[in-house]
Nucleic acid binder design. Structure first.
Length: 822
RNA sequence: GCCGGGAUGGCGGAACUGGUAGACGCGCUCGACUCAAAAUCGAGUGGGCUUCGCCCAUGUGGGUUCGAGUCCCACUCCCGGCACCA
């Protein structure tokens, strides 16, 4: 071994070895159990950032650990290559999005390779490749024929100065990011996928995902937002039409004191023509961004229509208001307002002096106080006609039955989830394979003509999608009637590509079909790893696609990802690293300076994967220092000469107490690290345990006693094996230096020796009234009376129980004794 | 606004099932080596005090318990998502 740890030489050698042996190629016919470990593929922005390094290190650690556990591991990598940044780069720097993207991919692939991630590069894919997106187009047409695709109008952010559609991200405080113009909402025809057809299954499927973090399941549950309630109709005084509303609280029906209409509701629009106050609300609703966060934080405003609705049960007139907190996108765009029992209705009623009539009282007999807010809990009904005195739940059912019997309403299940709008008025995306024929209407592109290829030589200086001014792209003939027709110039939402890439990795070379039988062999992904920011959208769309692919017969499982790990963000000085804040750390510079193993080690050591990670330059130096010490430990151990390769197994009985303690440390470390890496994914504590072990071994490495040396050998081998998934290059080198001919990447994960873990005695904590007062050492298995006697005999304990009566003694075996004295 | 999460020494974090708060690392202090510095090695390191030990201490305020960082209630601040950023 060289005197000094030279990470760059070691890393280059290890990477060359893996490349030569094609170590990470995954083969379907390998008899070992398959394990598919996937990290969310990156958007090729140009360079890796620390978030990528963290994500992919976690994935690589899991993959290499599973390999050592005897699995046939698939760990692929690809590129989520369509998206807005490429268009922005094109506008700002005059480079074509395709060229920019492909250069970025090349640069980032090189960076990933330098970090030593064990990917099967044979399966690499980029979503901007027509070989990839053609199958998305193919599927879209299948879904269109099946009725899962439809077209309707939906609102977009329109920048009236730049004459272009803006993404929500490009709308800042209601204004266009470049022009600064007040953004308007425009309705344009768009393509939708009927994800709501799968709402029930997407919801119930969450119960079958024990390997997902509960907070992600909760977020998806809330997003889908299943609610049971009643849809009922209110007649409008003097008019023919009725107002349809949905409520989850039919028990509060007698407390309705006004109706709320969305500004976009057809009735609001009609009234706006003659009522300037309503017109103002309608106009206001049409400016600013479409993002829900913008809408929900607007000041609550409203206007009286002068119309009244008729209460379906009492026949009383109820004023109808236009209210900007009522959203046209949910339900019917109208609500019945019960200010006494709904907080939003309460606030609006307060602001406009509308009556608040309580009809539900707390069931526990306490007083009802609605002076500071609504009472939203269930209770007992009052002032509710024949339903007075009923508890909320029974009243809800009874009122629903009454409405149904009278033909005034029906019980219904409502979802918050909306259908997925997949049209984007942008260039750098997969073309939507549809043709608009003046005679036949919408006609899908025939399968034989797929893919509809996105032209890559384009001019983006004009603003908006260049496809719209490229007849060579859009001009075509109708597949049905042969007349001149136009292609759809909208492209797909990039979430489309990322909704099925995990399955395509199983068979990226399949050119006759979207997927083949290999997709069923590898999926569902055993372990998926990515940022928590994807908890709802990406992960819900991917689940939806998986079910759609199943129903198309292309897959035969119900869920795409068996286990999910959501990693936290990488912060510096407490805030997210970002170019705009100028607080980024370039992983490449760190790899150049310290080597990949140090970067990987620090990233895994600094925090558990689900928490945010605070960046620390001196922490990285600490990681480098540890690797140098580990290197020196192995070097110094080997410098004392060879050990008999196959001596008698070490037996606990023949060891002195120091040797027993050291050997116990070795095996305790194996137990802890196996649990931490294999089950808990707390790589930071596994590393801390190896550091403790290495500190203990360093104290013993100078001893000449052959038995001690054998224990040290056992210990350094355990340390090298445990670290192999985290610092694979150094472990590769040290494992070979320790005389092994099989590479560490294929070595079996270490097993703890039960005998080495055994102890003769154990130290117990002694408390008096819950406060630590001393320690006693007892033989393992000592009975309660012995423990009690020893605890009470402890000098410091005596001081604290003197003159007091012992009320009881709590004993936690092998851990703690608490003397309760008074 | 709605949904989800977080808060522990000077810093990152540990404490897994309610049972010794602060493992491990960083930083800092002192010492060794050195002409000196860096690197390296060794020792110490939550605050306070009357220091064989005691008191205080896990965002704030309450509660449950023999015992609470951990469970419950109410709050504060920070972070993620909110359907066209990916």
């Amino acid at each position: 071994m060289e005197e000094q740890y030279q990470p760059h030489r070691i890393e280059a050698a290890a990477q060359a070895y893996w490349e030569e042996k094609q170590t990470f190629r995954a083969h379907e016919d390998d008899p070992r159990p398959k394990y598919y470990c996937l990290s969310m593929f990156p958007y090729p922005s140009g360079r890796l950032h620390m978030g990528h390094v963290r994500n992919y290190t976690i994935g690589d650690v899991v993959s290499r650990y599973k390999r050592m556990q005897g699995h046939n591991v698939l760990q692929p990598m690809g590129w989520d290559a369509f998206g807005l940044p490429a268009e922005n780069a094109a506008i700002e720097r005059g480079v074509a999005p395709a060229a920019w993207t492909r250069e970025n991919i090349a640069a980032m692939r090189e960076q990933l390779q330098r970090l030593g991630f064990g990917y099967d590069w044979q399966r690499e894919l980029a979503t901007c490749d027509p070989d990839y997106y053609r199958w998305e187009q193919w599927l879209f047409i299948r879904l269109y024929q099946k009725g899962l695709v439809y077209r309707r109008t939906a609102v977009v952010n329109w920048d009236p100065v730049d004459q272009t559609v803006l993404a929500n991200e490009q709308v800042i405080d209601g204004r266009g990011w470049r022009s600064g113009a007040l953004v308007e909402q425009r309705e344009i025809p768009q393509w939708f996928l009927r994800i709501t057809d799968y709402a029930d299954e997407l919801l119930s499927g969450l119960d079958a995902l024990p390997g997902w973090p509960t907070q992600v399941c909760n977020m998806q549950r809330n997003w889908i937002g299943r609610s049971e309630g009643v849809e009922l109709r209110f007649a409008i005084t003097g008019r023919d039409e009725q107002l349809t509303v949905f409520t989850t609280r039919p028990d509060t029906l007698y407390g309705v004191t006004y109706m709320g209409l969305a500004p976009e509701h057809p009735l609001s629009l009609e009234l706006a023509e003659s009522n300037p106050q309503i017109a103002e609300l309608v106009a206001e609703a049409r400016t600013g961004g479409t993002a829900e966060a913008d809408l929900a934080t607007r000041e609550k405003r409203g206007a009286d229509t002068g119309l009244t609705a008729i209460h379906p049960l009492t026949g009383q007139p109820i004023p109808i208001w236009v209210a900007n907190f009522v959203l046209m996108g949910y339900g019917s765009g109208a609500v019945m307002a019960v200010p006494a029992h709904d907080q939003r209705d309460w606030a609006f009623a307060r602001a406009y002096g509308l009556p608040i009539e309580p009809v539900v009282y707390p069931g526990d007999g306490s007083d009802l106080d609605i002076s500071e807010g609504a009472f939203t809990a269930p209770g007992v009904l009052v002032d509710s006609g024949p339903f007075s005195g009923m508890p909320s739940e029974r009243a809800s059912a009874a009122i629903a039955e009454r409405l149904e019997a009278a033909g005034q309403g029906e019980r219904r299940i409502q979802f918050r989830l909306r259908d997925w709008g997949v049209s984007r008025q942008r260039y750098w995306g997969a073309p939507i394979p549809m043709i608009h024929c003046p005679h036949c209407g919408i006609v899908p592109v025939p399968e034989a003509e797929l893919p509809v290829v996105l032209p890559e030589q384009v001019d983006l200086s004009g603003g908006g999608s260049p496809l719209r001014s490229m007849p060579e792209f859009y001009a075509t003939t109708c597949p049905q009637c042969g007349a001149a027709a136009e292609r759809e110039t909208d492209t797909f939402d990039t979430f489309m590509e990322s909704s099925w890439y995990f399955a395509r990795f199983a068979c990226p070379d399949q050119h006759q079909a979207m997927l083949d039988e290999r997709a069923d062999q590898w999926t569902p992904v055993h372990q998926y790893i990515g940022g928590v920011e994807h908890a709802v959208l990406h992960l819900l769309y991917a689940r939806f696609f998986h079910k759609v692919l199943r129903d198309e017969g292309l897959l035969h499982s119900d869920e795409p990802f068996t286990r999910l790990l959501t990693q936290g963000m990488v912060l510096k000085e407490g805030v997210k690293m970002s170019k705009s804040k100028g607080n980024t750390v370039d992983p490449q510079a760190l790899v150049d300076r310290f080597g990949a193993d140090t970067v990987r080690l620090f990233t895994m050591f600094a925090a558990p994967p689900e928490q945010s990670l605070e960046w620390s330059d001196s922490g990285v130096e600490g990681a480098a220092r540890f690797l140098r010490r580990l290197y020196a430990l192995v070097r110094d151990h080997l410098a004392h000469g060879d050990l008999p390769a196959d001596g008698e197994p070490l037996s606990t009985a023949s060891l002195d107490s120091e040797q027993q303690a050291l050997r116990r440390k070795v095996h305790e470390t194996i137990v802890k690290a196996s649990d931490d890496i294999g089950k808990r994914f707390t790589f930071n504590t596994a590393i801390a345990a190896v550091m403790e072990l290495s500190n203990a071994l360093a104290k013993a490495v100078g001893e000449a006693d052959p038995v001690t040396r054998r224990i040290v050998r056992e210990g350094v081998e355990a340390a090298v094996l445990i670290l192999a998934p985290i610092t694979p290059h150094l472990s590769h080198h040290l494992w070979s230096a320790l005389g092994h001919t099989t590479p560490v990447v294929d070595a079996p994960w270490p097993q703890a020796d039960e005998q080495a873990l055994a102890r003769a005695e154990v130290e117990l904590v002694v408390q008096v009234n819950g406060k630590l007062r001393g320690h006693v050492t007892l033989p393992v298995g000592a009975d309660e009376a012995t423990a009690r006697e020893a605890a009470l005999a402890e000098a410091n304990v005596q001081r604290f129980i003197e003159g007091k009566a012992i009320k009881k003694v709590v004993l936690v075996p092998e851990k703690l004794i608490n003397v309760v004295a008074q």
